[in-house]
Design a protein around this nucleic acid. Structure first.
Lengths: 127, 127
DNA sequence: CATACTGTATATACTTGACATATACAGTAA
DNA sequence: TTACTGTATATGTCAAGTATATACAGTATG
């Protein structure tokens, strides 16, 4: 399993795992139904605690990327893109909501928000 | 000065002050150029520390609502709505940016974001 | 059943950031 | 000088986030 962890980057370990796993799944390098490395194995490889890998996997499950079966393992979920998108939208919505609250109390119009959103979405920066 | 502080509401003191001051200014109850209560006076009235009132006033200045003159006091800034709006937009932009980052990695389209934004903006809930 | 895997739950430690403070400093003005 | 103004520093408290060890529970197979 090709997961790389950097301790000197600020981003938490569990998050690094989650992101990279998402990438593997979305790029098809982990096929539908395929088993992920067990929490213990991955923890051993990365020299971290099981609890941390668990947390990463929990996040993946919450977002619909994997299904986890106690006693058996974690498996790549059937590619339910619609569900993943909805989950993502829900998370994005929280941020949009905050933006809206700020905007309304400061006289920023909806069109301005939309305009800004379009600019941001168009940009190619990912980090 | 009619500022009310609730210790049992979760929202920090400095934030309560900032919000209420904004309200007073936007509603014109504090006129342009008028002096705000001094940090010390307000602190005494509210039975809190000067540092806390300072923090509240700093936020107000950062957002362009007041100007503060060391040794003299804090004064309602000339109504520069344009500037206030730009500042607000800048703050909102941070949240929009996060929403976009999430959205892009999960296959959520720009139009979906915009749609959600419109819904949120239309709603009448403020808290 | 025994063994060796899976994931899960609990209680704990560490670190960081947010919030609020007291106290000492510096500018302004009568 | 006195009495106001805002400012800076160093400190204290608390909650949240991150990661952990250890003990528990389900699954499968010889």
């Amino acid at each position: 399993m090709d997961i790389l962890i950097s301790n000197s980057g600020g981003t938490p370990i569990y998050d690094q795992i989650t992101r990279q796993m998402k990438g593997l799944i979305l790029r098809g390098e982990l096929a539908e139904g395929e088993a992920l490395p067990s929490m213990r194995l991955l923890a051993k490889e990365l020299r971290i605690s099981v609890i941390t890998t668990k947390r990463a996997y929990e996040e993946l499950e919450r977002e619909g990327f994997i299904t986890t079966v106690p006693g058996k393992g974690c498996f790549v979920a059937p590619r339910n893109l619609e569900l993943v998108r909805e989950e993502t939208l829900r998370r994005a919505e929280e941020h949009l909501s905050q933006a809206v609250e700020i905007a309304r109390t400061g006289g920023v119009t909806l069109s301005e928000l939309i305009e800004t959103l379009q600019l941001l979405y168009g940009e190619d920066e990912h980090e």
